[in-house]
Amino acid sequence: MADMAVDSTGLQAAAGPYDRARALSAFKLSDSAFYWTTRACAISVLLILGGIIISLMVGAWPALREFGFSFLTTARWAPANDPPVLGALGPIYGTLVTSVIAMVIAIPVGLGIAIFLTELCPMWLRRPIGLAIELLAGIPSIIYGMWGFFVLGPFLANHFQPAMIALFDGVPVLGTIFAGPPSYLSLFNASLILAIMVLPFITAISVDVFKTVPPVLKEAAYGVGCTTWEVVRKVVIPYTRVGVIGGIMLALGRALGETMAVTFIIGNSFRISGSIFGPGTTISAAIASEFAESDGLHQSGLILLGLLLFILTFIVLAAARLLLLRLELKAGK
Rank of each mutant, 00 (worst) to 15 (best):
V213T: 08
P214I: 04
P214L: 04
P215T: 01
V216H: 03
V216W: 00
V216D: 03
V216K: 02
L217F: 06
L217M: 09
K218L: 01
E219H: 04
E219Y: 01
E219M: 03
A221W: 06
G223K: 02
C226A: 15
W229H: 07
W229E: 04
V231W: 05
V232P: 02
V232H: 08
V232W: 09
R233Q: 12
K234D: 10
Y239L: 04
T240Q: 03
R241E: 03
I245N: 02
G246N: 11
G246W: 07
I248W: 03
M249P: 01
L250R: 07
L250N: 04
G253P: 01
R254W: 09
R254M: 12
L256F: 15
L256A: 11
G257I: 14
G257C: 07
F264I: 09
I266S: 00
F270R: 11
F270L: 07
R271D: 12
R271W: 03
F277W: 05
T281Q: 11
T282H: 09
S289V: 12
S289Q: 14
E290I: 00
F291W: 10
F291D: 01
E293Y: 09
D295R: 12
D295F: 10
G296L: 03
G296A: 07
L297H: 05
H298M: 01
Q299A: 15
Q299F: 07
Q299P: 00
Q299W: 03
G301E: 06
L302S: 05
I303L: 14
